[in-house]
Computed example of a mutant assay.
Amino acid sequence: MKSVALHKNSSSDSSVNTELLSRTGYTILAINVGVFSVVGIILNVLVIVVTIRHRQLRQPLSYALVNLAICDLGCAVFGGLPTTVTNAMGYFSLGRVGCVLEGFAVSFFGIASLCTVAVISVERYIVVCYPMGAVLFQTRHAAAGVVLSWVWSFVWNTPPLFGWGSFELEGVKTSCAPNWYSRDVGNMSYIIIYFFLCFAVPFSIIMVSYSQLLWTLRQVTKLQVSEAGSTNRVEVQVARMIVVMVLAFLIAWLPYASMALAVIIDSSLYIDPVIATIPVYLAKSSTVYNPIIYIFMNRQFRSFAVPFVLCGWNPWASDQQISEGETTVASISKSQKVSPKGSLK
C-alpha cells in the first residue's frame, strides 16, 4: 500500500526519499546509468568528430548517422548524467522545474532519435531496392529527414510545457517522463496522440522498410545470377545485420512503449516501480549501441575511427572483407546489370 501511494505522488514530493529501493539498489542503478552515459557520450562524440574530420564520410547517409549521434549524445548528457546523480542520492533532488526540464530534454532527444532511425531505415530501403537510380537518396533528402526529425519531436514534446499533458516522475522516482498515469481528459488525449505519432509511426516505418528490404534480397537470391552459393551467403549476412538492427530497436523501445500503452488502456493497472524502471533504462541504453550498430559496422567509418582512437594504428588495415552493405548493393546491382552507385555507407 505504501508503494501504491507513493506511485501517485506528484513530483513536488520528489525531495522526499521514497525508499522504493534500498541504498544498495540506488547505488547499483547509479553505477549502471553512469557507465552507459559515459560510454554513450564517448562513442557519440567520436562519431561526430571523425565524420567532421574526414570529407570521405560526408555522404547523404552521414547526415542521418551524425544526427543520430547528436540525439543520443543529448539523451546521455541531459538524461543519463542527471539520473546518475539522482540515483546516487536516492531520490529526485532537482525539484519540479528540474523534472519538467529533464523530462522534456530526454523525450525531445529520444523521439528525434527514433525518427532518425526511421530515416535511416528508409535510406537503406531506397538504396538496396532501387539500385538503378529510379529513386535516389540524395543529400537534400537526408537533410530534410534530419530537419523533420527535430521538428516532429519538438512539436509533440512541447505541449506539456503549456498545459496539454505533463511530465512526472517514473519508475523508482529518480527520472521524469511524460505522465502516462493521469486519467485527466486533457492528459489522456495528449498521451494517446503522442504514443501513436511518436512511437507507432516510426516503428511502422522501420518494420515496413526492413521487411521490403529483406523481400528484395530474397528475390535476388531466386535469380541465381551470382556465383554458386555467394548470393545466399550475402543474404544471410545482410539479414543478420538487419535482424540485429530491428531487435535492438525492439529491445530498447518496445518494452517501454508497451508499458505505457498498457497503463493508458487500463487505468487500474498497477506496475511495481522497480519493474517499471527496467523499460526506462533499456530505452536509455540505446545511446550506447546505436553508434555501434549503425556506424561501427560500417567498414569505411571504422577505417577512420580506429586510427583516430589508436593514434594512427589500425589493426584491421589489411582486412579486405567487403562490408555487408557494400556486398548487398553490389549483388543487387550485378543482378540487374547496372552500375552500383548506391551504398549503405
Rank of each mutant, 00 (worst) to 15 (best):
S189C: 11
D319R: 14
C71W: 03
N314D: 15
V100M: 12
L250P: 00
I42N: 03
I278N: 04
V119K: 00
S3K: 14
N232F: 10
Y181T: 09
L217M: 15
L20T: 05
V100N: 12
D319T: 11
S11P: 01
Y26I: 11
S153P: 07
A142E: 00
L223W: 08
C115Q: 10
I251D: 02
Y270I: 07
G90E: 10
S10Y: 12
Q320D: 11
H54N: 15
L250F: 15
S343M: 04
T86Y: 05
I48P: 01
I271G: 04
N157S: 11
R302K: 07
A248P: 01
F296D: 02
L223P: 04
D319Q: 10
Y289S: 03
S339V: 11
L310M: 15
V128N: 05
L344I: 12
V329R: 01
G90W: 10
A252H: 10
A283C: 11
T158S: 15
S62P: 01
V127A: 13
R140E: 02
A262G: 11
W180S: 13
A305R: 04
W316G: 00
F167S: 01
R233T: 09
P273K: 13
V45R: 07
A283Q: 04
F167K: 03
L68N: 01
K222M: 04
M89F: 15
T86M: 13
F296E: 03
L197C: 09
V151M: 00
R53F: 14
W152T: 03
R240D: 03
P202C: 10
E102V: 04
P131R: 12
V306C: 06
S303H: 13
I292E: 01
Y181K: 14
S182W: 13
S339D: 10
F199D: 08
S333C: 06
L81Q: 04
Y289F: 14
V155N: 00
S175A: 06
V306F: 12
P159L: 08
S149H: 00
L20P: 02
S209R: 09
A252F: 14
Y194T: 05
F301W: 12
P315W: 14
Q138P: 02
Y190F: 15
S107L: 13
K284W: 06
S230H: 09
T221G: 13
V208H: 05
W253A: 12
G312F: 11
S343I: 07
I41D: 00
S333P: 07
L114G: 06
V280T: 08
S323V: 10
V45Y: 09
L21Q: 13
V155Y: 02
Y256G: 04
Y63P: 00
S37D: 03
D272F: 06
D266N: 13
T216M: 14
Q59V: 14
A228H: 11
Y63S: 01
S343Y: 10
P60G: 08
A239Y: 13
F167E: 01
N9C: 02
L261M: 12
M245R: 11
L73C: 03
I42W: 08
A144H: 09
